[in-house]
């Protein structure tokens, strides 16, 4: 084999679920260690660096100045950047109030009005990685899917572009022949949400909460009107849309309100 590619996994704000998914890859994880040099993986090894990276895998959203500095350093050191999971891709659940203002007030309500902590942490409102640097590939999910991770990483290592399904959750839900929860009157976000999870929640009779982030092409105004007709309040619908919607949802909601006006 030619020179092994240097890969690092770097973690920002999130639950570290993506590192756990990688650790759970079993025999494929051992294979991965065989074919690449893993130089950064905080959950698995104590020696971690950011230097001459071929591929950097990012999990979590950016919420402090020091994370931002690290992200920029990674971008400068890496040929290919991959955002793992909904937090890194879209901002995650911690970005649900993005753009609503009064962020410092909200921060201090939780962490106290003490400026000492604020000045020391230099926190900022949670945003996805692509707000600050160029991201080459995205693997959404909460957490991401093992199969989609292995597909993406194998393709990049072998210098072929990865391809993840751009379809919504409903597609796989139909493949599984589930009874449609939206048709039953539930607040299901399947049509708006990026698929690939195997429609796992609707398959267990639980409406989709949108945890894989917004699908690229959706018809939000139509689903919004449909949910209003089904008796849900605007507040409730927006809260659900925003829960995992991150930055793309801010834009989508703005467009929707303009369209409906």
């Amino acid at each position: 084999m030619l020179n092994k590619k240097r890969i690092g996994i770097y973690s920002f704000t999130g639950c570290s679920g993506e590192q756990l998914v990688i650790l759970e890859c079993g025999k494929y994880l051992l294979k991965l260690y065989e074919v690449v040099d893993i130089v950064g993986f905080p959950m698995a090894q104590s020696k971690n660096t950011i230097m001459d990276l071929d591929i950097a895998l990012l999990e979590g959203s950016i919420t402090t100045e020091s994370q931002l500095a690290e992200l920029k350093e990674i971008r400068d050191s890496a040929k290919t950047l991959v955002a793992l999971g909904t937090c890194a891709c879209y901002g995650g659940i911690q970005s649900m109030k993005l753009g609503e203002g009064d962020w410092k007030k909200r921060f201090q309500e939780v962490y106290g009005a003490d400026d000492k902590l604020y000045n020391k942490m230099k926190p900022m409102e949670s945003k996805p990685c692509n707000e600050f640097v160029t991201i080459d590939y995205y693997i959404p999910g909460c957490p991401m899917d093992k199969g989609q991770f292995l597909h993406t990483i194998s393709h990049i290592i072998n210098d072929t572009p990865p391809h993840l399904y751009p379809f919504p959750v409903c597609t796989e839900c139909k493949w599984k022949e589930n009874d449609c929860l939206l048709n039953r009157g539930e607040l299901c976000l399947g049509p708006l949400t990026r698929g690939g999870c195997g429609a796992v929640c609707p398959s267990h009779n639980i409406p989709c909460v949108g945890c894989w982030g917004p699908a690229e092409v959706t018809n939000m105004p139509s689903e919004y009107k449909l949910l209003l007709e089904k008796g849900y309040s605007q507040i409730e619908i927006f809260r659900n849309f925003r829960k995992f919607g991150g930055t793309p949802m801010v834009e989508k909601l703005k467009n929707m309100m303009e369209k409906l006006r």
Binding site: M1, Y28, K31, L32, E34, V35, L150, H151, I153, S154, H155, I157, N158, T160, H163, F167, P168, C170, T171, K174, W175, C180, G190, P191, V217, T218, N219, P221, S222, E223, L226
Partner: peptide, 29 residues
């Protein structure tokens, strides 16, 4: 078009819909 949710349900359940995509899955090594 303004109304369609673009969820794809109609095509998945349709007996005469036959379109498919082909994807290669490259293994690690």
């Amino acid at each position: 078009g303004d109304k369609c949710l673009e969820c794809g349900a109609c095509t998945m359940v349709c007996p005469s819909c036959n379109c498919y995509n082909v994807i290669d899955e490259v293994y690690l090594s």
